[in-house]
């Protein structure tokens, strides 16, 4: 309908459009796009943290080194474990909670929504320090409860033992990841077309059938969005690692994001860290694309 815009009007729209965009573009280009480009460029150099020292172009050397760096490979493995465990658990858990609460009255619904969102709002630092205390070897409540319940016979150093450390971190990550998916699913389930549900019930479909045959298809876009954001968030798991274990014991809990930070700030290898950043971004991009493709086929 707007194809018939006069050239005069089109010019005016373009100028005013860009003027309205300008303040936002300054921040977006300056603090998102430029660093993105810088990240890619410096990943081909031996850049250090010192910006006065000229960066020397070294081609693909950083990328080649990555695949021979045992710590990077371990961090990659850990990150993949975190993603593979947490993404499905978050999706299933939040879908269950959402379907249990979405048709409650406003009071209990708000209560549960707030409660499950609380760990996100509390902030990663506050959440992590309290879990660190709860996991602690001598004064932690988890050891106390498990010992009194007869589940373990002596205290376990949860975060200091490579066998348990990563699992402990994943548990905290899960509690801080389900808030947003629950809110999204509650709203999606509330928007499911009622006439379809009623028609199916008239035809004698039971609750399970109604859910899988009708609701599941209608909340698919939400599921897809949740898959993507949970994957991105799990890939970026950082604060938990830095505050709980600093990647220890013996790099057992390093994630890519933590190793990028470590490389840039402890070893001052800025270019190498950025090469890892690029690899991480490519991983996420591929996974998001695959998830989109899979969801579209269904």
């Amino acid at each position: 309908m707007r194809q018939t815009m006069s050239p005069e009007l089109r010019r005016r729209e373009t100028i005013s459009g860009y003027l309205f965009l300008l303040p936002s573009l300054v921040f977006f280009l300056g603090f998102v796009v430029i660093p993105m480009v810088m990240c890619i460029i410096t990943s081909f150099t031996d850049a250090t943290m010192n910006s006065n020292q000229p960066d020397v172009f070294i081609g693909l050397a950083n990328y080649k080194e990555l695949w021979q760096d045992p710590i990077f490979l371990k961090a990659l493995r850990n990150t993949i474990v975190i993603v593979v465990v947490s993404v499905p658990v978050v999706c299933i858990f939040s879908l269950w909670v959402a379907s249990a609460i979405f048709n409650m009255s406003e009071g209990p619904l708000s209560f549960f929504r707030v409660v499950f969102y609380l760990p996100v709002v509390t902030g990663s630092v506050a959440v992590t320090v309290v879990w660190k205390w709860m996991y602690s070897n001598y004064t932690g409540i988890i050891n106390y409860v498990l010992k009194n319940g007869g589940i373990i016979d002596k205290n376990i150093n949860w975060l200091g033992d490579p066998k348990y450390a990563l699992a402990c971190i994943i548990i905290i990550l899960l509690t801080t990841s389900v808030g947003q998916p629950i809110v999204l699913y509650v709203s999606a389930l509330g928007n499911v077309d009622h006439s379809l549900v009623e028609a199916a019930e008239v035809d004698g479909a039971n609750n399970t059938q109604v859910f899988w045959k009708i609701k599941w298809a209608q909340i698919m876009p939400t599921t897809l969005y949740i898959l993507v954001i949970t994957t991105i968030n799990s890939f970026q798991c950082f604060a938990l690692i830095q505050l709980l274990t600093s990647g220890g014991p013996n790099h057992a809990t390093d994630t890519i994001m933590y190793y990028i930070y470590y490389t840039a700030f402890t070893r001052f290898r800025f270019g190498y860290g950025n090469a890892m950043g690029v690899v991480l971004a490519i991983f996420i991009a591929i996974l998001s694309a695959v998830q989109f493709r899979l969801a579209k086929e269904k």
Partner: peptide, 26 residues
């Protein structure tokens, strides 16, 4: 512009912040 914005949102936000340090000090 809109595709650029959507594409940026799918990126890991934290990765951009490391290169941002040198920009901020400049």
């Amino acid at each position: 512009l809109f595709s650029l914005i959507v594409a940026a949102m799918a990126l890991p936000k934290q990765v951009i912040l490391i290169p941002l340090i040198r920009e901020m000090s400049k």
